[in-house]
């Protein structure tokens, strides 16, 4: 069963132009649907500014969709406990002036969980233990612990209210390689032990590949390809997915990937037809007029591309580990 179903989500931001011009609308997310199966991880990857964080903010109800709905465990009611957020920047997520104890107790107090000092303290110890920190951290402030430790604190805090789902927005972006590895291992371990499901937003394809069961690839407010993670990462079909994976720098490679040609379109006036057509190496005239639906192919994955039938050549992407 799906723990989250996102149905035709739309988020448009209206930006005022101060009277002289009509207001403009940023099409941050347009008609995005996905399912998150219980106990699984869905990675969302895509171009900077394509709407990933906007989806995250809608899932955790920090912002309301312009249209569409989000079902949590089949219900359309707002459940502020079931879905919790871990943001990219642990420093801005926590109050600098308050202790880590406060950060962990606050959600318990807000939701009236584990009432009483002793019960609350016990729960806080349990949370620290879950993420592999000791009690000596409790009285420190966010400024006094390293980025990796602080990211554990934000994970512990998100877990405080026993959620079913964590929405992780670039959880490992600013961590060094070995601390990143620790956090990835921790997330995998928590998922197994607590039966959690994750929506993982990341630019780090290797981490998405390591953790995700399914992946959704976004471009300019839309999902362009979605399917089994291993399948999409080893055999990407949509031209944008291919460009994205081809650009991942391999260790020891000496030259950045070639540029996508063409104008980067604006989310204020997304191009008609396929939104990628202004930069797509495969584009034909029809792509500028007609938008392909996100159709399921024979292998179960969905790709939104008019030229789907021509997108079969095996791609030489992702550098081999050896």
């Amino acid at each position: 069963m799906s723990v989250i179903s996102a149905e035709r989500l739309v988020k448009h931001y209206r930006i005022r132009s101060g009277g002289r011009r009509p207001d403009r609308v940023v099409h941050a997310v347009d008609d995005v649907s996905f399912e998150l199966a219980e106990g699984s991880t869905l990675a969302i990857v895509g171009e900077s500014g394509c709407g990933k964080s906007t989806i995250a903010r809608m899932l955790v109800r920090l912002t309301e969709p312009t249209a569409g709905r989000i079902l949590v465990q089949g219900r359309d009611t707002v459940d502020r406990r079931a879905v919790q957020f871990v943001s990219q920047n642990p420093w801005s997520a926590l109050n600098r002036r308050k202790s880590i104890r406060h950060a962990l107790e606050q959600p318990l107090a807000v939701h009236g969980l584990h009432p009483g000092r002793a019960a609350r303290a016990a729960r806080v110890r349990e949370l620290l233990d879950l993420v592999g920190l000791t009690e000596e951290y409790l009285d420190r402030r966010p400024g006094g612990v390293s980025g990796g430790e602080l990211q554990r604190v934000t994970v512990a805090r998100a877990l405080a209210v026993e959620p079913r789902v964590l929405v992780l927005d670039e959880p490992t972006a600013s961590l060094d390689v070995s601390v990143k590895a620790l956090l990835v291992n921790l997330l995998a371990d928590l998922r197994r032990r607590l039966g959690l499901s994750y929506v993982l937003i990341t630019h780090e394809i290797d981490i998405a590949r390591h953790l995700a069961d399914r992946v959704a690839v976004m471009y300019l407010g839309r999902i362009v390809e979605t399917g089994d993670a291993e399948q999409v990462f080893t055999d990407p079909r949509h031209p944008y997915t291919r460009a994205l994976l081809a650009a991942v720098p391999g260790i020891g490679s000496r030259e950045p990937a070639p540029l996508l040609r063409g104008e980067v379109p604006s989310a204020v006036s997304p191009p008609p037809g396929c939104r990628f057509h202004t930069r797509c190496p495969m584009a034909v005239d029809a792509c500028a007029r007609t938008e392909a639906a996100l159709e399921p192919g024979p292998d179960g994955r969905r790709v939104a591309c008019l030229r789907l039938d021509d997108l079969t050549a095996p791609p030489p992407f992702l550098n081999d580990p050896s």
Binding site: H203, V248, P256
Partner: peptide
């Protein structure tokens, strides 16, 4: 905070700046 295609564009831009105006750089990354 950049995806791989935009990252590649930025890296190319920095390399091009180095080639064109001879900028030296210290570049920190994980």
């Amino acid at each position: 905070t950049l995806d791989a295609t935009v990252q590649a564009q930025v890296l190319r831009l920095l390399l091009e700046l180095r080639d064109r105006v001879g900028s030296a750089m210290v570049f920190v990354t994980h």
